[in-house]
Nucleic acid binder design. Sequence first.
DNA 1: AAAAAACTTGACCAGATTGTCAACTTCTTT
DNA 2: AAAGAAGTTGACAATCTGGTCAAGTTTTTT
Lengths: 225, 225
Amino acid sequence: MAEELNAPRASAEKGHPSQAASDEPIRARNVLKILTAAVEIFSRKGLDGARIVEIAKASGLPKGNVYYYFSSKEEIYNAAIDRLIHSWDDAFRHISADREPGEAIEAYIRAKLDHARENAAETRLFANEILQGAVHLSTEARDHMRTVTSEKARVIDIWAMAGKIEKVDARHLFILLWSATQFYAEFEALACDALHVSQLKVADYNLAAKTITETVLRGLLTRPS
Amino acid sequence: MAEELNAPRASAEKGHPSQAASDEPIRARNVLKILTAAVEIFSRKGLDGARIVEIAKASGLPKGNVYYYFSSKEEIYNAAIDRLIHSWDDAFRHISADREPGEAIEAYIRAKLDHARENAAETRLFANEILQGAVHLSTEARDHMRTVTSEKARVIDIWAMAGKIEKVDARHLFILLWSATQFYAEFEALACDALHVSQLKVADYNLAAKTITETVLRGLLTRPS
DNA sequence: AAAAAACTTGACCAGATTGTCAACTTCTTT
DNA sequence: AAAGAAGTTGACAATCTGGTCAAGTTTTTT
């Protein structure tokens, strides 16, 4: 209902995928401005806490213009959330049965940390959404994450059965890795306090990667003793 | 300014610590009701996202009554936040130089996980506050946490110098332990999906403790090889 | 039991917030 | 260059929200 408003929007909603940004420069640019600002604000305040004037101001557009592209705050939020899911898979791709567990897990940790650092706002937004109970995550998105997790858990099991790593609960292991790699972006204020720095730099992320990798891998890899 | 309103409140604000709940049954009971409800709501929505009518409803008191005990939403929030800090130290007490690192760290992990499970709402509230930039954490609270962290980091260093554990960056190690132990309470929805359960039970927490402990300790403890 | 203090409550207010819209400007098409 | 589509904008309305308060009830004190 009320989906037919803002007619021009609909025409571009599921536009021909062959024609990208240059096809609709103004719309694409402004939608991007809005979503970028929205991710930043939503990631700190959540859906209910964010004020759309704040998003409008951060995007450099007047409020009325924001409503030209999106019909409600929820719609902006959902659009922002939808973009998060795909980033889930990327790092996970490293967990593959045909690789050696040591380098695969190290690569995974690095990829996760890099992603969190380079997409801190998105990472926080995701955290915020889960904190609130994942109410706005589509069931498809959750199903997808579940499926990928199961798939990758089997890789861990295969490595364990092959004697390449110690026996470990794969799902809890993933949680251990997720939590550690996302922490620095999500709880930057706390990490800064703990590390006695005023701002996380690349060096801090490198030492984080080293600490996580060494600690976990040393505990995981079987040794030819 | 405007601090003199609600006069009776002030009289009990810093009341004689010798007389506890039974001294002011009604006030103590209602303040507790409000704070309990507030922690639950704030932990999901944050300061700006929470509606005080919602807190009022959850506490079973009419809104006007809530304002009889607290003069603003911020005051409720700060009161809720203040209670979090002390729980910080409790688990940390296990990290002590005169204990064996293996059992000390295991006890620490267990204590942290237990605390997160038993105080899920508080744990989420803390996470939410840090996510938003820790703006409402008093500087004393942050200083305290920093101090305790430094103190305990030295214990790790002592263990490492004594050759009892591998060399590791103590602060990043703590972050690894914090993130893993808090994850289950903060991101329960995600953990449930990952573990293929609809609700976390004690058994899940036990397996979490086992996985974290074994993985980290196996990677940390030096072996008499 | 009377008075005072503590507590309760729903109605109310002012400002904030979401969402609308008509008039306007800019871009695209022909 | 004309016409139509797309985009812009500030003003506006309806609702929501934080916070107040006066009038009432209950509890405590004397």
